[in-house]
């Protein structure tokens, strides 16, 4: 039990942490609602005019759409690849397990800009200079795989394989076993991994900076280019949209996998 004095200090500390985490978000949102012409805080009156400006800017809407398409593609690819990798590694990795785990999660440890440079050099070496969407998908998938891999592995390690044996024993083919037993039980991990992958891809800056080209500009790069020349609240609007998306994603996770996956033991 905490004594009264201690509780006061604890509450204060928690409040400070939350303030520290949430303040930037509040500032971005308020800046987006600024009625004035410049990106600044506190706002000079409230208005939605910069939201309208964002929606009317072709370069912003196009890069938003591009970012969403890119993130969706990278999410699908990295979820499939990361899940397959963790299934194999957890079950059959043997002596290679540790080495392969380090290799698969390396993109987390290597600075993104280095991964980007490496990919750029690699693509040029292949004579595949103007990679556009394809190159970005490869780069994003690469950095998304570790999230899917790690989360799915954590779930798989706890998975009771006698459940799969029971399914086979009852007449299920390996594929039917995966579809009817394994996947439903690990889906919490797979969905969490996919959501992480999506957010990671949507936010990715370093690799996008090096691999994007004309007409292939993800939103973060567009934002960066824009801020170099103009300093108006449109940038804050882009940030606010990202924040709103993150909130939706968090709520979705809660809804899809939150409590249920805790219950299911395996998932």
């Amino acid at each position: 039990m905490l004594r009264r004095g201690e509780r006061v200090w604890l509450n204060a500390a928690v409040a400070l942490v939350y303030a520290f985490l949430l303040a930037p978000i509040v500032i971005v949102v308020l800046a987006a609602l600024n009625a004035g012409a410049y990106l600044r805080f506190p706002p000079e009156g409230l208005s939605l005019r910069w939201f309208v400006a964002f929606a009317q800017s072709r370069s912003f809407t196009r890069s938003l759409a591009f970012s969403l398409k890119l993130a969706a593609t990278a999410t699908v690819l990295s979820t499939v690849l990361g899940t397959m990798a963790s299934l194999w590694l957890v079950r059959f990795g043997g002596r290679l397990r540790t080495t392969l785990r380090i290799l698969l999660t390396a993109p987390l440890a290597v600075p993104g800009i280095l991964t980007g440079i490496a990919l750029l050099i690699f693509f040029y070496a292949l004579g595949w200079g103007k990679t556009g969407f394809g190159g970005l998908v490869i780069g994003h998938t690469l950095i998304c795989i570790p999230y899917v891999f790690l989360i799915t592995s954590a779930v798989l390690v706890r998975f009771d394989q006698s459940l799969e044996e029971a399914a086979r024993n009852l007449g299920a083919s390996p594929f039917a076993t995966f579809r009817r037993v394994t996947l439903p039980l690990i889906k919490g991990g797979v969905i969490s991994g996919a959501i992480f992958a999506f957010v990671t891809s949507y936010d990715e800056f370093n690799i996008s900076l090096l691999l994007s080209g004309v007409g292939n500009t993800p939103l973060p790069i567009q934002l960066f280019d824009y801020l170099r020349f103009s300093f108006d609240p449109t940038a804050a609007v882009a940030g606010t949209i990202s924040i709103a998306m993150a909130v939706v994603v968090v709520l979705l996770t809660q809804r899809l996998v939150g409590l249920e996956s805790l219950y299911m033991g395996g998932g």
Partner: peptide, 19 residues
């Protein structure tokens, strides 16, 4: 393969599908 053996098995920890 196991699925074509026509053996019914009861596992030590039952292995009931939790979902």
């Amino acid at each position: 393969p196991p699925e074509r053996r026509d053996c019914g098995m009861v596992f030590q920890h039952y292995a009931l599908f939790p979902h």
